[in-house]
């Protein structure tokens, strides 16, 4: 007991609740790095959650549910990609529309699935070796969802691709200065489409995690605002997957601690704590000079038309 059990339980919940945040953030980082702000995370996430729940219920195969959720998230994100890249619509409006559409559509489609238990949720796994490390082992590597470990592994991969490969340079170039990238022969629209779809796929998988592991159940509006936290975390992460991991786990830990510490601090203050923290970071990050250094894509939210500057 004592501080060790506090740390272990906090780490365990940071990973469990932080995983959907991390998945969503990894995807959104790629979309925003290419210059497309996607406020439709919540909508794509809940479509993924719905798809995963239905597929898993019908087939008994949770991993098939995850794959379908990824596909549904990706396809759903095409709506935003088409509107904001091809039609050059306002990204904020188009993203918000995607969220509303997703929440509404999943709510209507999901009516008959409410209140049904899921008999084959994603199972838990313990990582051999790592789980023997004191405190970190039982906290992070014991009886967690396999997807949580996968998300963790994806962080260095996504980071490496973004900052140390040709693909990553291309993505960032499109997000920073699409005109120059274009003049160098990069297909700006194609890169942006791909990045938005990657964002959709990740949001879909995050949704699957929620509906077939974290809950596991289906209810209307079950993403409960996680998509919005992802938007804030993306900025908090300075558009860097590694900081995305730190931010997601840190937010989740605070969220859990808010309930553990209710005995001593007023519930309403604690409830606000993770959000206050997010706002403070946002204020800090959005100070102009800092913004440039920290890596906000210069062309974020700006549609690109060849020959217009």
């Amino acid at each position: 007991m004592g501080w060790e059990s506090w740390l272990i339980s906090t780490f365990a919940r940071a990973l469990a609740y932080g995983t959907p945040l991390l998945l969503g953030t990894l995807g959104e980082i790629y979309a925003e790095r290419s210059g497309v702000l996607n406020l439709g995370i919540e909508g794509m996430m809940i479509m993924g959650a719905y798809a995963a729940f239905v597929v898993t219920s019908k087939t008994g195969q949770p991993w098939l549910g995850v794959i379908v959720a990824a596909a549904v998230g990706g396809v759903f994100s095409l709506i935003h990609a088409f509107a904001s890249i091809t039609l050059k619509a306002n990204q904020v409006v188009s993203g918000l529309a995607l969220t509303m559409l997703g929440l509404g559509l999943a709510g209507v489609l999901g009516r008959s699935w409410v209140g049904l238990p899921l008999f084959t949720p994603l199972t838990r796994a313990t990582v051999p070796g790592l789980s023997a490390i004191p405190i970190i082992g039982p906290g992070f590597f014991t009886r967690q969802c396999l997807l949580a470990y996968i998300a963790m592994l994806l962080v260095p991969i996504m980071w490496y691709i973004l900052f140390h490969t040709r693909i990553g340079v291309t993505i960032r170039a499109v997000g920073e200065d699409p005109a120059t990238a274009d003049s160098l022969g990069v297909n700006v629209a194609r890169v942006r489409y791909l990045c938005v779809v990657v964002g959709g796929i990740f949001a879909g998988i995050a949704g699957a995690y929620l509906s077939i592991y974290y809950r596991p159940a289906w209810t209307a509006g079950m993403t409960g605002g996680i998509g919005w936290i992802v938007i804030a975390l993306t900025i908090f992460a300075f558009w860097n997957p590694v900081y995305g991991l730190v931010g997601s786990y840190f937010f989740a830990a605070l969220y859990f601690l808010a309930y553990r510490m209710q005995m001593w601090v007023a519930p309403s203050i604690l409830k606000a704590m993770p959000y206050v923290f997010a706002i403070l970071i946002l204020i800090f990050v959005s100070r102009g000079t800092l913004q440039k250094r920290m890596g906000a894509p210069a062309a974020l939210t700006l549609p690109y038309t060849r020959g217009e500057e």
Binding site: A217, G224, Y259
Partner: peptide, 13 residues
Amino acid sequence: ENPAAAKEATEAL
């Protein structure tokens, strides 16, 4: 209704 809140509160208990 906030499943994540209900979940983490239960885990805390």
